[in-house]
Nucleic acid binder design. Structure first.
Lengths: 128, 128
DNA sequence: TGGCGATATATCGAAAATCGATATATTGGC
DNA sequence: GCCAATATATCGATTTTCGATATATCGCCA
């Protein structure tokens, strides 16, 4: 059912996978998701980013909301739907695969550049 | 000197880190970078995405080009500058940190959902 | 009592990133 | 001769994200 997100790939985002993964552990509401996603990603996610994303995932049938009337501002709890669980299975597996490949490139590069931080810049093989 | 990328965070992108990491192993030209980045990320990156990105990184002083007049279309080789090496050190470290935290969320979720793919969706703690 | 920060959801316009298409040019295979 | 692969580049349209703003309640502190 999800119209298969137009662009936006494994390389970017991670936001969708992260939200789905957090919800796999139990329902959360927007504000708590914002905190958890920010903590997991080591970077603050703005409300203006998260809420439209949640609305899109809800429209795609991946998550389903339940309003809770608490004291204070009411909370909108989101739970994974079966479609959301399937999406998580697929997306998280793809994410792992891409991650492993990227690590194979980034880790050696980080080691090299950390060990020899002042090494001279390399030059092209045989530039004209 | 890089104007400290406006938005675009660790959570997304990875494209910058990946390009810097590949160049840490030696110079590459656009087309070869396109292939290598696509392979590493498990997803095809379009030329219309990569070339503007390379121009931006060049403008930021992270990479420096050298034209090579080969038989066929000439190649523009890119090499890491010292600033590019510093950027790689910082960005790759941040990337690792964010990655470790995200893995801590995604891996258990993937295991749970893979092991019990048809488990009933969880419901909010005490929805009104 | 009054103000402020945290909690909580939501929308809007602006800026940035990415795509998809197109342009240009050479080489090699069929 | 035609098409695919190589190779760099730009352009408009779509999508994403930010930053700001709106609204509302609660608790804290002066």
């Amino acid at each position: 059912m999800p119209p298969a997100d137009p662009h936006k790939s494994l390389l970017h985002g991670s936001l969708d996978v992260l939200v789905l993964a957090i919800l796999a552990d139990g329902p959360q509401y927007g504000y708590s998701l914002q905190k958890k996603v920010s903590e997991a990603g080591n970077h603050a996610i703005k409300a203006g980013t998260l809420y439209p994303l949640l609305h899109r995932m809800e429209a795609d049938g991946l998550i389903t909301p339940t309003w809770e009337k608490t004291t204070g501002r009411p909370r909108k709890w989101y739970a994974l739907t079966p479609a959301g669980q399937k999406a998580l299975t697929r997306q998280a597996a793809d994410w792992q695969a891409a991650l492993a490949r990227m690590q194979a490139v980034v880790l050696p590069a980080l080691r090299r550049v950390t060990r020899f931080p002042d090494a001279p810049a390399l030059t092209p093989p045989e530039p004209a």
